[in-house]
Amino acid sequence: MSGLALTFTLIFVFITVLVSMRQKLGLEKDIMIGTIRAAVQLLLVGYVLQFVFRTENLFLIIFIIVMMIAVAAWNAGQRGSGLRGIRWRIALSIGATEALIMLLLLGLGIIEPASQYIIPISGMSIGNAMVVAGLFLNGMKQDVLASKGEIEALLALGANARQAIQQCLKRAVKASMIPTIDGMKTVGIVQLPGMMTGMIIAGADPLEAVRYQILIVFAFTSSAAVTSIILGLLSYRLWFTKELQLRLQDSR
């Protein structure tokens, strides 16, 4: 894509701004800030990745992945405001998921041990895990509040924290995985995923693009399951005080 063609893509931004002004949505400032940030961030990432791909420095690759996990944990942690230590638990959950996926992909020879494969796939996997973590925490908030009576009754009968909140955990894990599972059912029919589309536009063989997209779809499914389950195991105790009282006030 030429620089001139890239400039023409600003037409889509102007259309969005005009719609906001016409409907008096008041989003013009946010749209402009988002546009500038997106362009600057993506250009910077492009230069960084270009350098990393050329050098193939292992420490740089690890640093980039760690930064991705840290940012993802910080963002998803906003859904668990009031829960102390939730962000490092999210980071640990996403990190464990990333380690498992990369171990399988590299150990089984599914992808080559090169930065041009590791970093993009890690980015997509970590991004998916971030969304799952946010959905899990949001589901837990709502479910714990709705099940307050049931949880307190179980505690009164002698159940421990894990037993009392077990059903909420199951429902939250299920809810966090539904978007990923629904995406699997409709991929290629309702939507053509970004990775596959990008490879085809870049001139790759469509069947080769499909193979990589199948890899991503299956990895996303594993990522969703592992992230939500590990996060549930690490965080369920945060919903209680030391005296096993629910932290309903803090979890809102």
Rank of each mutant, 00 (worst) to 15 (best):
M1F: 10
A5L: 01
I11A: 12
F14E: 08
F14G: 00
V17C: 09
L18K: 07
S20H: 00
Q23A: 08
L25S: 00
E28L: 08
K29L: 10
K29H: 14
I33C: 09
G34P: 01
G34S: 11
G34W: 15
T35W: 06
R37E: 09
L42Y: 07
L44C: 13
G46T: 08
V48K: 02
Q50N: 08
V52F: 09
E56G: 08
F59D: 04
I61Y: 08
I61T: 05
M67E: 06
I69L: 05
I69P: 02
V71Y: 14
A73M: 04
A73L: 02
N75D: 11
Q78T: 10
R79F: 11
L83G: 06
R84W: 14
R84A: 15
A91Y: 01
S93V: 08
T97L: 10
E98K: 10
I101K: 00
I101C: 06
P113M: 12
A114I: 13
Q116R: 10
P120E: 05
G123V: 13
G123Y: 05
A129W: 03
V132L: 02
A133N: 12
A133L: 08
L135I: 07
F136R: 03
F136P: 04
G139Q: 07
Q142W: 09
V144N: 02
A146S: 14
A146M: 11
S147W: 03
G149C: 05
E150M: 11
A153G: 11
L154Y: 15
L154D: 00
L155G: 08
A156Y: 14
L157F: 14
G158N: 15
A159C: 15
Q163S: 12
I165C: 09
I165K: 05
Q166S: 03
Q166Y: 13
Q167M: 03
Q167R: 13
C168E: 01
A172S: 15
K174L: 05
A175V: 04
I181T: 07
M184A: 04
K185F: 03
T186F: 04
G188R: 12
V190K: 02
V190R: 12
L192W: 05
L192F: 09
P193G: 00
G194F: 08
M196I: 05
G198A: 09
G203R: 12
G203W: 15
P206G: 11
L207G: 10
R211K: 15
L215T: 11
F218I: 11
S222P: 00
S222D: 01
S222W: 13
A224K: 02
S228A: 15
L234G: 03
L234N: 13
L234P: 00
S235P: 06
R237C: 03
F240E: 02
K242T: 09
E243N: 11
Q245H: 11
L246S: 02
R247M: 03
Q249D: 11
Q249V: 06
D250F: 09
D250T: 07
D250W: 01
S251Y: 02
R252E: 04
